[in-house]
Simulated assay, not measured.
Amino acid sequence: MPFRTRAVVTGAALATAAVLLSPAEAYATRMDGERWTAAPAPAPDGGARPSAQDRPYFYLEGAPGTVLNDRLALTNPTGSAVTFRVGGTPDGAGRWIVTASKEVRVPPRTRADVPFTVTVPGDAAPGDHSSALVAEGDGRKAAVPVHLRVTGPALAALSVEDVAVERRGSAAVIRYVLVNRGNTALAPRLAVHADGLFGPALRRAARALPVTLPPGRRMPLTEPWPDPPALDSVDVRLTVTAAGGARGTAGASYTAVPWEAAALPPAGLLAGAAVWRVRRRRRTGDSPPEADARGAGVGAGADA
């Protein structure tokens, strides 16, 4: 089905785009008074100036091997023509995007709708794939997100890696990495447990993390621990879950030593050595040297 435009679209080339921005970021770079805008094109009977309220991003869904179609609307409300370059970086699902034109000249107070296709490879993994369409013109750049879902069996899987606890003054921070090993985007939930020699040191029930983890993505994160124990040996364990049965767990050991004790190691070593010697003698039945000497003296006197 042919697409109608309100301007002459010149040139013909292939371009791919793979820039992932949130809708808020994409529109924040474009909406500035009477400057040009880029957005998903509305229906044929829609308004002359699409906005984030119409469609904040492209959403396309199809099976492997299908070809999907949509249109990018470039609106020029100014009094002079603007020449746009439409394309992006060839990365990820952006390599599946082909625009009808690489260069588009939009006259004053005119909107041009640029058709593009997304060809889903026959061996594409089912799940969520993200990319973007990028438009550059008049010294500015805008990226409109393209969210693509390839239909098929969904697999939700994740892992927790590289857990470590770092001391920061009287507080601590837990570092870890989440890895999405499935083919669907995940909204993870985190639970934290820590047990020391003196009992439980930390209990945090599962809560939603303010992140979305795309398929195949590694994401370093941190968890604050404002009141860790001052003196203890603690085992910290993180458990992360997500919809679809995804679950990952990992842990790390953490030894807390008071700064006062760390500043005086000789005194601590001497005290520890003394306690160790006393316990060893009690365990083996050895007598103190003074007692041995007294016993030897008594025996000698009897023999004499």
Rank of each mutant, 00 (worst) to 15 (best):
Arg149Trp: 01
Gly199Ser: 05
Val211Ile: 06
Ala48Met: 12
Ala100Cys: 03
Leu186Gln: 02
Leu158Tyr: 05
Pro266Cys: 03
Val114Gly: 06
Pro220Ala: 03
Asp303Gln: 15
Gly152Val: 04
Leu202Trp: 07
Arg6Gln: 15
Pro188Gln: 03
Ala273Gln: 13
Val144Cys: 00
Thr37Tyr: 07
Glu136Arg: 10
Ala191Asp: 01
Leu133Gly: 05
Asp303Tyr: 10
Thr284Leu: 02
Thr119Val: 05
Glu61Thr: 12
Asp286Ile: 00
His129Asn: 03
Ala156Ser: 15
Ser170His: 12
Ala63Cys: 00
Pro77Phe: 09
Ala171Trp: 09
Arg71Asp: 15
Arg203Ala: 04
Arg237Gln: 07
Pro289Ser: 13
Leu269Asn: 08
Gly139Ile: 03
Thr5Trp: 07
Ala205Lys: 10
Leu213Arg: 02
Ala41Cys: 01
Arg140Asn: 11
Gly47Trp: 09
Val236Thr: 02
Arg294Lys: 10
Ala296Tyr: 11
Ala18Asn: 14
Trp259Asn: 11
Leu178Gln: 04
Pro50Arg: 00
Asn180Val: 06
Tyr176His: 08
Leu60Gln: 07
Ala201Gly: 08
Val163Leu: 02
Pro121Lys: 00
Pro265Cys: 00
Glu136Gly: 06
Ala38Trp: 01
Lys141Pro: 07
Pro289Arg: 14
Arg181Pro: 05
Pro64Leu: 02
Arg218Ser: 14
Asp292Ile: 15
Gly272Lys: 00
Gly301Cys: 14
Ala52Gln: 11
Val146Trp: 04
His193Tyr: 09
Glu34Ser: 11
Ala26Cys: 07
Asp54Leu: 08
Leu202Pro: 04
Ala302Gln: 14
Gly47Glu: 14
Ala17Thr: 12
Ala18Cys: 11
Asp113Tyr: 02
Thr83Pro: 01
Ala172Ser: 11
Val8Ser: 10
Ser233Tyr: 12
Asp128Thr: 08
Ala26Trp: 08
Ser159Glu: 12
Gly94Asp: 02
Ala12Tyr: 15
Pro2Gln: 14
Arg189Val: 01
Ala201Arg: 12
Arg140Tyr: 12
Ser51Met: 13
Phe116Trp: 08
Ser287His: 13
Gly299Tyr: 08
Arg237Met: 06
Leu202Ile: 01
Leu72Val: 00
Pro56Phe: 00
Ala48Phe: 11
Pro265Ala: 01
Asp138Thr: 07
Val120Pro: 07
Leu269Ala: 15
Thr89Leu: 12
Gly46Lys: 02
Glu223Leu: 05
